[in-house]
Structures are given as structure tokens and as C-alpha cells.
């Protein structure tokens, strides 16, 4: 890793740029991550947003952003970023705005857009080598509409549309690899609960040009059914159990940035969340728990 301003926890910003007063739920892990991201990125940004929880960050006439914001629609935030980026380039090239007025273009979407409806627009933007940073707050379901399962929902999780005794039958899509397969400038996973790792990755992402993804797991007290105060703890457990590997991809090389040995059993993570409660009560479902554990183990076996 190159020079970093974030060597110790004490290096992290202690005052925060993003304004309070937003409509996000108390204990929102996504908002917590965005706070950290925004502190590092700064206000010379335009956030281009797709429909999701964070759309409600700005409700007329209130906005927490010190820089700019543009809401587009659910499917096409990267195309909005394309239009803004190209327009700013044209304006700077033609001298209609001075270079110091230029800003970084940031896409902000939830997993619903990032894993599903928006994949086509995202793939197109990466393919066009658009200079933008894509931030996905991944709370593993359509949170803003009441947590129906999405393509980011993990196996066996109970959602509003997978409420049977075995929960969601599918498996979480590997968006990191889908991005990496496009060979973009930078891809990284982060979580608000690991702020130093997050800050360094935002720092790296802000330094390079081209398409960049920051994929943030966003513990969601409302959708995952846990107490808001446990957001950070759940986030830490996601990392320590190996469920959420922290990693980055540069030039096609994937590096794990924080590897916990030994890993805690996945149960430690699962049992803290109401959405997995049916795996433990009324009776334990060992075959599902074993499968989840086996998949996590298999992942780490491959990468270690």
C-alpha cells in the first residue's frame, strides 16, 4: 500500500462533514459508512443517486451534503454520472469553468440498484472507462420498501418476501467479482465497523481515476432485525466470522486487507440477527448452519 494519512485510529477525522438531521433509521450501518466515506472524499463531489434508502437523505429543502447531489432513478445512476462527468470535462476544456471548480463524481446506490436493476448501466459505464467512484451501501435487501429479498440477500435470511421456515433459498451474488471481471481501476469491500480499513480504501480510490467500486456492507437494524446499538458489533462480527471479507482489487490482483485468524464461527454473526432467528428456534437447523459455515470456509480455503 502507498503512503497513507490513516495509520492509526487517531488519524481518522473527529469532526464530520455530512450534516445530521436526515431521515435514515437510527443505527443505520449504511449512513455510518457514508459518514466515514464523505469525511475522506470531501465536499468537492457530486453524489449521483439511484432510488434506495439514501434517496431520502435529501428531502426538499433539506440536504446533508456540503457538495452537490443529483437524484436520477433506480436503474441509471452511472449514466447520470456519465452525463455530469462529460459535461464538467467539456466545461473545463472550454474554459467555461476553472479547473478548481471541477468535482469528483460519485454514484451512491443501495444493493437493489447495484446488484440488480442498475447492473446494465454500471457495466456500460465501466466499459466506457468512466472516471467515477461507485459507492454501494449493501444492506442485503430492498430496505426502503420494507426489506424484501434482493440479489444481495444471503442464503437463508428471512425477508418480507422469503418468510418461510428456511428463509431465502438463493445465495448472495458476488458483485465484487462481477466488477473485477470488467478490469476497472479499483474495487474494494469495506464496512463502517472497520474505519481505518475503510478510510485507506477511500483514500486509494480517490487517488486513482477510472471506474472504482466501494462495496460497503451496511448492517441494517430495521431490515436485519437487531438493536440499533449493535450495528458496529454486527459489522465487526461479519468480518471476524469471515462472512464479509475485506479486500481490494487492483490490476486484477485481489488482496485481502484484514484477515482474522482464527475466524469465529458464523453462528456468532447469525444468531445476533432476527432475520436468521428461524435457524435457531423453535429448533436448530444444523444442515443450513453447516452449509453456511462450509461456504465461508470454502471461500477462505480458496484464497488462503
Amino acid at each position: 500500500m502507498t503512503e497513507t494519512a490513516f495509520r492509526r485510529m487517531n488519524d481518522l477525522p473527529s469532526t464530520h462533514l455530512l450534516g445530521g438531521g436526515t431521515a435514515m433509521c437510527a443505527g443505520c450501518g449504511g449512513l455510518q459508512a457514508i459518514q466515514e466515506v464523505y469525511d475522506v472524499l470531501g465536499k468537492n463531489t457530486v453524489f449521483v443517486n439511484a432510488a434506495g434508502c439514501m434517496t431520502l437523505l435529501s428531502i426538499y429543502p433539506f440536504t446533508p451534503f456540503r457538495g452537490s447531489w443529483l437524484y436520477t432513478a433506480m436503474a441509471s445512476a452511472p449514466a447520470g454520472a456519465q452525463g455530469v462527468r462529460d459535461a464538467l470535462d467539456i466545461l473545463v476544456e472550454k474554459g467555461r469553468i476553472p479547473p478548481e471548480e471541477n468535482v469528483q463524481v460519485v454514484v451512491l446506490t443501495g444493493d437493489g440498484a447495484a446488484y440488480g436493476m442498475g447492473v446494465s448501466a454500471t457495466s456500460g459505464a465501466i466499459d466506457r472507462n468512466l472516471d467515477f467512484l461507485y459507492i454501494c451501501y449493501d444492506n442485503e435487501g430492498y430496505g426502503n420498501t420494507g426489506q424484501q429479498y434482493s440479489e444481495a440477500t444471503p442464503h437463508a435470511a428471512r425477508t418480507a418476501t422469503s418468510s418461510g421456515p428456511r428463509g431465502y433459498p438463493g445465495y448472495k451474488k458476488d458483485l465484487f467479482s462481477i466488477w473485477a471481471a470488467h478490469r476497472p481501476a479499483y474495487v474494494a469491500t469495506v464496512i463502517g465497523a472497520e474505519p481505518l480499513d475503510l478510510a485507506r480504501k477511500i483514500e486509494t480510490a480517490a487517488r486513482v481515476r477510472g471506474p472504482r467500486l466501494i462495496l460497503a456492507l451496511a448492517p441494517c437494524p430495521t431490515g436485519w432485525d437487531f438493536e440499533p446499538r449493535d450495528t458496529i458489533e454486527i459489522g465487526r462480527l461479519a468480518v471476524r466470522t469471515g462472512v464479509w471479507p475485506l479486500k481490494e482489487c487492483v490490476d486484477g490482483q485481489v488482496v485481502h486487507t484484514k484477515v482474522r485468524r482464527p475466524r469465529l464461527p458464523v453462528e456468532e454473526y447469525l444468531k445476533r440477527q432476527g432475520r436468521f432467528e428461524h435457524l435457531f428456534a423453535p429448533e436448530r437447523k444444523p444442515e443450513i448452519l453447516d452449509e453456511i459455515q462450509a461456504r465461508v470456509d470454502a471461500y477462505w480455503q480458496r484464497v488462503e
Binding site: A75, S76, V84, S123
Partner: peptide, 26 residues
């Protein structure tokens, strides 16, 4: 001028609106 082929009309109109909002003639 600058021409960009998007991957759909949905994206095309998004980009058109966004660039127009940023102040260029689209």
C-alpha cells in the same frame, strides 16, 4: 462535440439530462 454511446435509452436520457443540468448544450 463529444458523443457517447450509452448502453440503453434509459441511460442515454439520464446522461442527457445530467449533462444539460451541468450546463452544456445537449
Amino acid at each position: 462535440g463529444r458523443m457517447v454511446t450509452l448502453e440503453s435509452e434509459h441511460s442515454m436520457i439520464t446522461a442527457a439530462g445530467a449533462a444539460a443540468a451541468a450546463g452544456v448544450r445537449v
